[in-house]
Amino acid sequence: MNFTFCLLCTLFLMNSCIPKKSEAPIDFNLEQESTLNLRDYGTPISTIPILSYPNTEQKKEVGSDALVGISIENADQYLSQLIDADKIVLNEKKIRLIIDYPLKKPVSFDLQNDKGFTRRDLILTIQEKYK
Rank of each mutant, 00 (worst) to 15 (best):
K21I: 09
L36W: 10
T10W: 07
D114F: 00
T47M: 09
D100T: 03
K21T: 13
Y53M: 03
P25E: 11
S46D: 12
I83E: 12
Y78N: 05
N2W: 06
A66T: 08
K105G: 02
A24Q: 11
T35N: 11
L124W: 00
L67Q: 10
D121I: 04
K129C: 13
L30E: 15
S108L: 06
S46Q: 12
E73D: 15
E31S: 08
Q77R: 09
L103D: 02
L97S: 01
I70S: 08
L30I: 12
L8I: 03
A66C: 04
E73K: 10
F5S: 08
I50P: 01
N29V: 08
L124D: 01
Y101F: 14
E92H: 04
D110N: 07
T43F: 11
N55E: 08
L82H: 02
K105I: 14
Q112H: 12
D110M: 01
S80A: 12
T47Y: 13
C17H: 14
D27G: 05
Q81N: 08
F12C: 04
L13D: 07
K59V: 04
A24L: 13
D65S: 06
L124P: 02
Q32E: 15
E61M: 09
R96F: 00
K87F: 02
E92M: 00
L11M: 12
L111A: 06
P49N: 10
I18L: 04
L51H: 12
N113G: 00
T125E: 15
K104H: 09
A24M: 13
E73Y: 13
R96I: 12
T43G: 00
N2K: 13
E33T: 07
N55L: 06
F5H: 11
E33D: 15
F109G: 05
L13I: 15
